[in-house]
Write a protein that binds this DNA or RNA. Structure first.
Length: 426
RNA sequence: GGAGAGAUGGCCGAGCGGUCGAAGGCGCACGCCUGCUAAGCGUGUGUACCCCAAAAGGGUACCGAGGGUUCGAAUCCCUCUCUCUCCGCCA
């Protein structure tokens, strides 16, 4: 949630900065809801004060054996007024919080203004695209030829966008997960977490998936739970409704989880291959930090994600998302895009965001800067370190050999029993 | 799934339907005292929101959550959630 005080104090500035996102918000309605809510609340509280006073007097009178008939009569009218206010108050509060929950985060002042992803500036490149003396294939062609990816049977078991990994394909995925976790925990200082893959509504609301994006989620009916679309959700919510000690910060968390997404509204897009699945694996990085350091921490977090690609020897570039391409909760985001020679394009493999106090406010994650001081909202960050399925795709396409085999990157061999090459089909 | 017990402030723990934001203890902060590695004494010590330009100040809410009874509920009633114990089942 944004800070409503900013909206009250500078509605024009707010309007302008949000407009750069391209989101359409009825600001008049939000501000009216805020005003109405406060007015009704003030009125309700004044009545309540009167009622509490009367009630106290009745108590004292009765104890002294006096007659409280007059007071009882007055309290009756006050109670009636209060009752009449209950519904409008509840309604205006609901209206206000609902509209606040649907407002995205304010882009950071430094974020480039743009109209689409085409306006995302490229910040840097690492490595080089590999040269081939043959025409490189798509990963789905390679995967089916080698028998390590079985799309048809994935679809049979569940439906479109579900895939079966087999043999050395499954092993490669597992090796990537272990490799990524080891790198992030041993070298970058993240604590490894294995969180629940199903979470409740409050948790989903805390990070911003609900209420606006319920249609994008898989859910269970009884009980009313959601399959996590990313480990960002459980990791960031670890400290929901807590007041942390300054010494607890910064907290670095890292988790491997499967991720589940409906991909509603992306019909027909990336239908082939592993790029867009309803279920995919990801190693996620989450940081809970003090506000002053969050942008610096974003730079570090992005480097932590890049390190994975560097160790694997995969060529990539880093882009900054312009205002129009920012996610709902993010104030600033870097995307890491890996080169896929089989498709001749860069594809997002990690998205690293500073959500500033947006999620912290929703989830009530605070810390006490110093003893005796009031609790303050933390800043939260998250980034993929990395999307495992897409990394497997990148390895298949970048390290494919002329004979149809795939070379295993040096960094992964110890995780694969020393395997240097996934051999071509006989 | 069945039977039972419980949920109170940072922690422990009390709480006849009214004077309870809540005894007491611990912890913590500040002060005093004291020459001995500490004790003693005193004071203070929650969060959110509203009013106020702000500070000061005032107000409202919160004793797991949500409803209800009552002029008045931490205290009574209902529903739910979570924790613990026993039985069953299971990886």
């Amino acid at each position: 949630m944004i800070d409503v005080r900013i909206l009250r104090e500078d509605p024009e500035g707010m309007r302008e900065r949000m407009a750069a996102r391209g989101t359409d918000i009825d600001w008049e309605a939000v501000m009216a809801a805020d005003r109405e809510r406060r007015e009704t609340l003030a009125r309700w509280e004044r009545l309540k004060e009167r009622k509490n006073k009367l009630s106290g007097e009745i108590g004292r009178l009765k104890k002294a054996g006096g007659d409280a008939a007059d007071l009882m009569e007055e309290i009756g009218t006050v109670s009636a007024e209060l009752d009449a206010l209950d519904q409008p108050l509840g309604e205006t509060e609901r209206r206000f919080s609902e509209s606040m929950l649907d407002i995205p985060n304010l882009p950071d002042a430094g974020v480039p203004v743009g109209e689409s992803e085409a306006d995302n500036p490229v910040l840097r490149h690492w490595g080089e695209a590999p040269a081939f003396d043959f025409t490189p294939k798509n990963h789905w062609e390679i995967g089916e030829a080698l028998g390590i990816l079985d799309f048809a049977r994935g679809a049979k078991l569940t439906g479109a966008r579900f895939t079966l990994y087999r043999g050395q394909g499954a092993l490669l995925e597992r090796a990537l997960i272990a490799f990524m976790l080891d790198l992030q925990t041993r070298e970058h200082g993240y604590e490894e977490i294995l969180p629940p893959f199903l979470v409740n509504r409050d948790t989903m609301t805390g990070t911003g998936q609900l209420p606006k994006f319920e249609a994008d989620m898989f859910r269970t009916v009884d009980p009313d739970y959601f399959l996590i679309p990313t480990a960002e959700v459980p990791l960031t919510n670890i400290h929901r409704e807590e007041v942390l000690d300054a010494s607890d910060l910064p907290a670095y968390y890292c988790a491997y989880t499967p991720c589940f997404r409906r991909e509603a509204g992306s019909y027909g897009k990336d239908m082939r291959g592993l790029i867009r699945q309803h279920q995919f694996n990801k190693v996620e990085l989450v940081k809970i930090v003090e506000p002053e350091s969050s942008f610096e921490e974003l730079e570090k977090l992005t480097r932590d994600a890049e390190a994975v690609l560097q160790r694997l020897g995969l060529h990539y570039r880093v882009v900054e998302l312009c205002t129009a391409d920012l996610g709902f909760s993010a104030a600033k985001t870097y995307d890491i895009e890996v080169w896929l020679p089989g498709q001749g394009t860069y594809r997002e493999i990690s998205s690293c965001s500073n959500c500033t106090d947006f999620q912290a406010r929703r989830a009530a994650i605070r810390y006490r800067p110093a003893p005796k001081q009031r609790p303050q909202l933390v800043h939260t960050l998250n980034g993929s370190g990395l999307a495992v399925g897409r990394t497997l795709v990148a390895i298949m396409e970048n390290f494919q050999q002329g004979d149809g085999s795939i070379a295993v990157p040096e960094a992964l061999r110890s995780y694969m029993g020393g395997l240097e090459r996934i051999p071509a089909a006989k």
